[in-house]
Amino acid sequence: MGYVARVTTTPAVPRPAATVILVRDRTDPSGERAPLQVFLQRRVASMAFAAGMTVFPGGAVDAGDAIAPARVRGPGPAEWGRRFSCDPGEAARFVGAAVRETFEECGVLLAAPAGPPSGSSSGTAEPPPPDDAWLRAARSGLIDRTRTLADVLDGAGLVLRADLLRPWARWITPEQEPRRYDAAFFVAALPAGQAADARTTEAIEAGWWYPADILAEHAAGAARLMPPTWLTMTELAGFADASAVLAAAAGRVVTPTRPALVRKGERTVAVVGDREIAMP
């Protein structure tokens, strides 16, 4: 299940986590929708958190997610701390976790060969090393925790492309929940030459969705979105394309969103500001 209202005596300490909203443009053959698409995964039913939910790639921060500044291209910890309203060290780990989790869960690597930038301002990354065997081994090593993100970058002479990420939101799980997260939500365009896949044990399916379509699936009960995902997709439905999303996030400074769970008759709703979001 997703969020479930429970009574706890002492709220659990939220665990830092990071999520990446991958976007791309694909023309809708019917001409009825804007080209913007978002990559989503439906989690397996046995997961301890968000079981069966349709989510963005992401997960908890690991000890090895802090990457040395020399291995990062783009904003540094102080800037990310400002953008996510948190300590620079915590912000740096958010960035590392975002890149690691995206590579683990869908095979998209936000990294590039070390050295001067190519000079492109398109917002996409140079392709990672074109050795499929290396990519599979690196991804497997991260998944089974025999390698860290720093190991992967150093082993192939790569730098982490923090400049491809933009801040979108930060959500903290309600206090009633026994398993809580403080999750930084980033947005990034799918890099040129890369493809997102469904080769993860944490999801039973994955693919690209037009925002309006997944919102309709949720309304019909065919997909289940937690409040952060639902609200994010509702926001994204108002954008024409990926470049518009990135432009909207370019100067964004986010503060934590702390939904409250409230009973409304037979329902539980998440209250965010003046908005009530029905729980899945």
Rank of each mutant, 00 (worst) to 15 (best):
Arg42Ala: 03
Glu32Leu: 14
Ala68Ser: 15
Thr54Asn: 08
Ala45Tyr: 11
Ala12Asp: 05
Leu40Phe: 01
Pro57Leu: 09
Arg33Glu: 10
Pro35Gly: 05
Ala70Thr: 14
Asp62Leu: 14
Ala68Val: 14
Met53Ala: 15
Pro14Cys: 05
Val23Gln: 02
Val61Trp: 01
Arg33Asn: 03
Phe56Cys: 00
Arg71Ala: 15
Phe49Leu: 14
Ala66Tyr: 14
Pro69Thr: 11
Ser46Phe: 12
Pro14Met: 08
Arg43Ile: 02
Val13Gln: 13
Thr19Arg: 10
Arg15Asn: 09
Pro29Leu: 00
Gly59Arg: 08
Ile21Trp: 09
Leu40Trp: 04
Glu32Ile: 10
Ile21Asp: 06
Pro14Glu: 07
Ala45Ile: 09
Val44Thr: 12
Ala12Ser: 11
Val13Glu: 15
Asp25Glu: 03
Gly31Ser: 07
Ser46Thr: 13
Leu22Met: 08
Ala50Asn: 15
Thr19His: 07
Asp25His: 04
Thr27Trp: 02
Pro57Phe: 01
Arg26Lys: 03
Pro35Val: 00
Val55Trp: 05
Thr27Gly: 01
Ala48Tyr: 10
Gly58Gln: 08
Glu32Arg: 15
Ala70Leu: 12
Ala50Cys: 15
Ala17Gly: 15
Ile67His: 07
Ala45Gly: 11
Arg24Leu: 07
Ala34Leu: 04
Gly58Lys: 09
Asp62Phe: 09
Ala68Cys: 12
Arg71Tyr: 14
Val61Phe: 02
Ala70Asn: 11
Ala50Arg: 15
Asp25Val: 00
Leu36Gln: 07
Ala68Ile: 11
Ala70Arg: 15
Ser30Asn: 06
Thr54Glu: 04
Ala70Ser: 15
Ala63His: 12
Pro29Gly: 06
Gln37Glu: 01
Val44Met: 01
Val61His: 09
Val38Phe: 00
Pro16Gln: 10
Ile67Met: 04
Leu40Asn: 00
Pro29His: 02
Pro16Thr: 10
Phe56Glu: 05
Arg26Thr: 01
Val61Gln: 04
Arg73Ala: 14
Gln41Asp: 05
Pro16Ala: 12
Ala50Pro: 10
Ala50Glu: 13
Val20Ala: 05
Pro16Asn: 05
Val13Arg: 14
Leu40Arg: 02
Leu40His: 01
Ala60Asp: 11
Val20Met: 03
Asp28Cys: 07
Val72Met: 11
Pro16Phe: 05
Pro29Val: 07
Val44Ser: 09
Pro16Leu: 09
